[in-house]
Simulated scan of single mutants.
Amino acid sequence: MVETTTFPRQVSGTAAAGEAPPGGYQFYLTEAHHPQNGTLLGFWLYLMSDCLVFACLFAAYGVLGREYAGGPTGAELFELPLVALNTTFLLISSITYGFAMLQVQQNRIAGTQIWLAITGIFGAGFLAVELYEFWHLIHQGAGPHRSAFLTSFFSLVGTHGLHVTFGIVWLIVLMTQVARHGLITANKRRLMCLSMFWHFLDVVWIGVFTFVYLMGSLP
């Protein structure tokens, strides 16, 4: 809990609206006031709003996922070995981020930076495979404009990929902050928020892998 020092100051004269009465005291905060766990609570609220976004995208795919408009189906397009490789990259990145947080708890800057860098590499590998998949589908004429199925597919998977992209940018920024200022309280709090965000993306991807790719590959 943040301790705040206050200094009383006696006020004389006539008080204006909202000010201390004559002869009363006004107190001045000498340090920034930050409620305990306020940032984490706010970030949990953000994640809940993000859950609603993905819930809408999953619902749209559930409605439109069989509307092929005479075009290719998921069973004809999806390459499960490639998607399995992609899934492995993201799940391993979640494990490596957990190792980074263990280093944070032990106040080891070098170890934290190493595991964060490894996490970023696996995240970048995930994005590279996903971009290749999108390029391959569009090259086959199966772009988002081809059918309602492909529109909902690109919307859901693309939104998740965009989140991973922002997560990697955030990761790089935090690595820079840790290199400059060390594992101060603010940086530990930010790393914790990114940890929740990264694991949240893993959970969403498991839903995408199961609901979109595995079920979509069925005849």
Score class of each variant (00 low, 15 high):
G158K: 10
G143D: 15
Y61A: 02
M1N: 09
A100L: 10
I118C: 06
R108P: 00
Y28G: 00
R190V: 00
V203G: 01
I109K: 08
I121T: 08
S155A: 15
F211E: 07
M48V: 11
G98R: 14
F209M: 02
I172P: 00
F197A: 07
G207N: 09
A17K: 06
M192I: 01
Y61S: 00
L171M: 14
G182M: 11
N187S: 08
S217Q: 11
P72Y: 06
G74W: 13
G125Q: 07
I95C: 04
W205F: 12
Y46E: 06
L82D: 12
L90V: 05
I172Y: 08
F99K: 14
R146K: 15
Q36W: 07
L29Y: 11
F7Q: 10
L174I: 08
L162A: 14
T176M: 08
F209Y: 15
H139D: 09
W198H: 12
F166R: 02
T14N: 03
R189A: 11
E133T: 14
A16M: 06
I184E: 10
M192C: 05
E31R: 08
L45A: 13
S93C: 13
F134L: 01
L40R: 12
L171V: 04
L85C: 09
L64Y: 11
L194R: 03
A186E: 15
Q26K: 07
K188I: 03
T88H: 13
I184T: 10
T119C: 11
A16R: 11
F197Q: 06
F43T: 00
L45F: 08
L90Y: 01
L127D: 04
Q36C: 00
E3S: 07
L29G: 00
L45N: 10
H199D: 09
V203R: 08
F154S: 02
T159L: 07
Q105S: 13
R9G: 11
E19A: 09
G38Y: 10
V173K: 14
Q106V: 06
L40A: 14
F58K: 11
A59Q: 09
L218W: 01
F54E: 03
G18S: 10
G70F: 01
G167V: 04
T159P: 02
R108T: 05
L183Y: 01
